[in-house]
């Protein structure tokens, strides 16, 4: 049911620009107004969300320690999984953000006869996640060719490596295939694994389908139904120069692609996609485990009622004296 809802949502999203461009001639709306609005919502929304998180303090230093702490000098510290200083934290965060370190650790629990439990490492989720995120990033970088004039050289380098295998005309990009395959895997996994399906919300299926839709329309435009790429670039360059105009005859497929992207951008700050920012702010990962070395300050630390020694001695003085324990007041 949730899956059906998600499908409908994405189909409707794809149908909107089709109808708008095809029948209502709303190219200004879909080509200028919505992209501007989406980018504005994206930027302001992300900043708003980050600032909102930042307004809550981190009262305690609670890193999850996944290795030996800094201890006696002859005991080897695991500086990346249990960092004690800034360098280690940067290393840990880099591993986490660039290599998905924690996900790489993933295991699959199996219960066999006996009973006997075993935990085999399971890298498929990690593999799909890393293929997905890196492909997405590289594709984004490649799109910079439509956002710059002249196109910087490193874009060519990325394009050449990505399109190294000269398959088809125009050359197939490996990341295009990887992205679609990875998103498909992540979606199928969510549908097929009973546990994951049980925890999944509509809000989990929608982004996957949305991104798949974006990838698919992109691939269709590149390899099957050519759109006017010069027009696309003119539109984009006009937008970023704040002299927007929509060239004629770009192709409806492009507007579907653009609208899905705009939706993703606008949806981003209000969804779980904010894990992009959140991963930097997770107190279990971005803090050094130097708790006993450096005092951590809690800005809202407040005095509390305690049971003082005086109160304690008052209650038990006689008993203490009876067994010869020293007391403050005789």
């Amino acid at each position: 049911m949730k899956i059906v809802v998600a499908f409908i949502v994405v189909l409707v999203l794809a149908a909107l620009p089709y109808a708008g461009i095809q029948y209502a001639g709303m190219s200004t709306v879909f080509g200028i107004i919505i992209p501007y609005a989406a980018v504005a919502v994206f930027i302001l929304g992300v900043v708003y969300r980050i600032v909102k998180w930042a307004r809550s303090p981190v009262p305690f230093r609670i890193p999850t320690t996944c290795g030996q702490e800094k201890s006696l000098p002859w005991i080897k510290q695991n500086k990346l999984d249990n960092p004690s200083g800034t360098a280690g934290v940067l290393g840990r965060m880099a591993l986490e953000i660039l290599c998905f370190r924690s996900l790489f650790r993933n295991t699959r629990t199996e219960l066999r006869e006996g009973p006997r439990l075993s935990y085999a490492s399971s890298v498929w989720l990690w593999l799909a996640a890393i293929a997905f995120h890196w492909s997405f990033l590289i594709i984004l970088i490649r799109h910079f060719r439509l956002f710059s004039q002249p196109v910087p050289h490193f874009i060519n380098v990325v394009e050449n490596i990505d399109g190294f295998l000269q398959i088809g005309v125009p050359t197939l990009y490996i990341t295009d295939i990887l992205l679609l395959a990875a998103v498909l895997y992540l979606f199928i996994r969510r549908v097929v694994l009973p546990q994951v399906r049980y925890i999944s919300l509509v809000a989990d299926y929608v982004p996957l389908l949305l991104i798949f839709g974006i990838g698919l329309t992109g691939v269709l435009m590149r390899y099957f139904f050519r759109v006017n790429v010069i027009g696309v670039k003119e539109l984009v360059m006009g937008l970023i120069a704040f002299k927007p105009h929509v060239p004629a005859d770009i192709g409806t497929l492009f507007f579907i692609h653009l609208f899905l992207i705009a939706t993703l951008f606008a949806y981003f700050p209000f969804s779980k996609l904010m894990h992009l920012g959140g991963v930097f702010l997770s107190p279990t990962r971005n803090l050094a485990n130097n708790n006993r070395m450096v005092r951590h300050i809690n800005p809202w630390n407040y005095p509390v009622h305690v049971h003082t020694y005086a109160e304690y001695e008052d209650e038990f003085r006689d008993k203490m004296k009876a067994v010869g324990l020293p007391v403050e007041k005789e």
Binding site: F224, F225, G251, L253
Partner: peptide, 14 residues
């Protein structure tokens, strides 16, 4: 128009 033609291509042989 040009777009319809493109969708036709999807339906027909690429």
């Amino acid at each position: 128009d040009i777009d319809k033609r493109k969708f036709l291509k999807l339906v027909g042989v690429s």
